[in-house]
Design a protein around this nucleic acid. Structure first.
Length: 498
RNA sequence: GGGCCGUUAGCUCAACCAGGCAGAGCAACUGACUCUUAAUCAGUAGGUUGAAGGUUCGAUUCCUUCACGGCCCA
């Protein structure tokens, strides 16, 4: 409905507010003092269920009314605060005639402040017997229907607050997401990592292959890019002597929106000096098991009808062997550019004609192997031309000391031993710059300042990025990234809302 | 960017295929009710059917375009 055309219900609420003001009752007061939460009350009952009478002790709580069952001179209401939901019993002979008349004017969705003692109803439900009732905040708009709630995904995302009011499973998803981030933070802090914040607006966007958003700084008179990754700044910090650093925050990529991509997304990146990429794989397994236990209490994670087993040892295999074993591509073909191009075309994969061998191989992997990697799997042995920031493998210099982690058919993490040879890094950037010239908008930018930093010396270091949104999807059994982002990006609705 | 589907009362959905007064439940309003919990009972009101255009005596329904969203593909 158009916002500026008020529904009958809203007009009636406006009239109620005017009536309240007429009776000198503030519909939006600011003086109600809460002394208990619903959780406090429930815990008190668990602790000493026999010590309650209707009059003692007295609890003072506040919350939003979610349901009202009215009888003539008494009502049951359900209200909720941040800690839970509780039933209260409002009787005219307990709160007095004046308060009861006010109460009769209240609506589902209003906030009330209540005080009273606890008793058990005939059906055995602990209930607050209200002695005093105050309006704490009037609501103007009706909430969705209590039984079906709010289902329309468009409305759920655009007006997430209603989604959160109505759908407790949605609330739980975001509580869990917060728990995941907290667990990761604890895990890293316990290992002597330092949490840092690096620029989100960067003069040269680096650290990933992606198209950046461009913005403009007026006073400096220059364009800046929203970061596509924090990587190059975090490595500058390792150069500066912070040997273990991490950052959990947003990055931005100016690309398509889908059930797996939001233009802004949250990433953990962490860097550890004197570690190698093999160490990171061990740490990653440890971290995920820790998070799983902290957040779900188990290392068996149900996801979209499957069960992900975080507890068992995670498989590690090379890109080449994965392509052969899972993708069904004969290992002998992996150096045959023409054959691979044919194969790509027959699988409907678009590859630029000039695309380098490593690009074609990883594209084939994305289509033929990635969706099949259900259980946690590390893929190692990535070609150097698709890994411009990774250290070369000592024995096979065309490959890098790099892994990606796949779970439930999604790429979850990417880590490697860092390239710390400034001359090699410069060569890699030049190669990327050439690909950018050739039309690959996502190719890495040359970052001379970063090269200069490397020239001061970066100790051998391994670093990793983990997609927090995808991790949250995994732990909350969400099929779409929008279910784990509070306010996913949407086009503005035309004129109000439909 | 392409394909399919959707948009009807505050919310959840009918009616559309095969054109003929747009309905229900919950929410709201009036009344009854002091142990309900999707309370119950009696009654009332609430609609620019996403937008614009076309076909038609007549369009929520058929056609075109557009907007927004969902799923799948790129």
């Amino acid at each position: 409905m158009n916002m500026d055309k008020k529904s009958e219900i809203i007009k009636k609420r406006e009239k109620k507010i005017a009536d309240l003001k007429g009776k000198n009752i503030n519909p939006f007061p600011n003086d109600f003092v809460v002394s208990h939460t619903v959780r406090d009350i429930k815990q008190a009952i668990i602790d000493a269920p026999d010590s309650f009478t209707e009059d003692d002790p007295v609890f003072v709580v506040a919350g939003r009314m979610m349901a009202i069952n009215r009888f003539g001179k008494a009502s049951f209401i359900r209200f909720r605060d941040r800690t839970g939901q509780l039933q209260a019993y409002v009787r005219r002979d307990k709160i007095g005639d004046e308060a009861f008349i006010l109460f009769k004017q209240l609506d589902i969705g209003d906030f009330v402040g209540l005080s009273g003692g606890m008793f058990k109803t005939r059906t055995g439900e602990w209930t607050l017997l209200v002695k005093e009732l105050k309006l704490v905040c009037k609501s103007m708009r009706p909430l969705p229907e209590k039984f079906h709630g709010l289902k329309d995904p468009e409305k759920r995302y655009r007006r997430r607050y209603i989604d959160l009011i109505m759908n407790s499973d949605v609330r739980d998803v975001f509580i869990k997401r917060s728990g995941i981030i907290q667990a990761i933070r604890t895990f890293l802090l316990d290992r002597d990592f330092l949490e840092v914040e690096t620029p989100m607006m960067q003069p040269v966007p680096g650290g990933a292959e992606a198209t950046p958003f461009v913005t403009h700084h007026n006073a400096l008179g220059m364009d800046l890019f929203l970061r596509i990754a924090p990587e190059l700044y975090l490595k500058r910090l390792v150069i500066g002597g912070f040997e273990r650093v991490f950052e959990i925050n947003r990055s931005f990529r100016n690309e398509g929106v889908s059930s797996r991509h939001n233009p802004e997304f949250t990433m953990l990146e962490f860097y550890q000096a004197y570690a190698r990429y093999e160490d990171l794989m061990d740490i990653t397994e440890e971290m995920f098991r820790y998070v799983a236990l902290e957040v779900t209490g188990s290392t068996l994670i149900p996801y979209q009808g499957d069960t992900i087993d975080m507890g068992a040892e995670w498989r590690r295999m090379t890109l080449a062997s994965a392509l052969e074993e899972i993708g069904g591509i004969d290992a002998g073909l992996l150096n045959n550019r023409d054959k691979l191009l044919e194969l790509a075309a027959s699988n409907g994969i678009k590859v630029t004609k000039t695309g380098r061998l490593g690009k074609i191989i990883t594209k084939l992997f994305d289509v033929l192997v990635e969706p099949k990697l259900l259980q946690p799997t590390f893929i190692i042995g990535y070609p150097v031309e698709v890994s411009p920031l990774s250290r070369r493998n000592e024995t096979e210099p065309d490959l890098t000391d790099r892994f990606e982690l796949f779970i439930a058919g999604h790429e979850i993490a990417n880590g490697f031993s860092e390239l710390n040879d400034p001359a090699d890094q410069k060569e890699r950037f030049l190669q990327q710059a050439a690909e950018r010239e050739a039309g690959d908008k996502a190719a890495h930018y040359m970052d001379k300042d970063y090269i200069e930093a490397l020239e001061y010396g970066m100790p051998p270091t391994a670093g990793e990025g983990i997609g927090i949104d995808r991790l949250a999807m995994l732990f909350t059994d969400a099929a779409s990234i929008r279910e784990v982002i509070l306010f996913p990006h949407m086009k503005p609705a035309e004129r109000g809302e439909r």
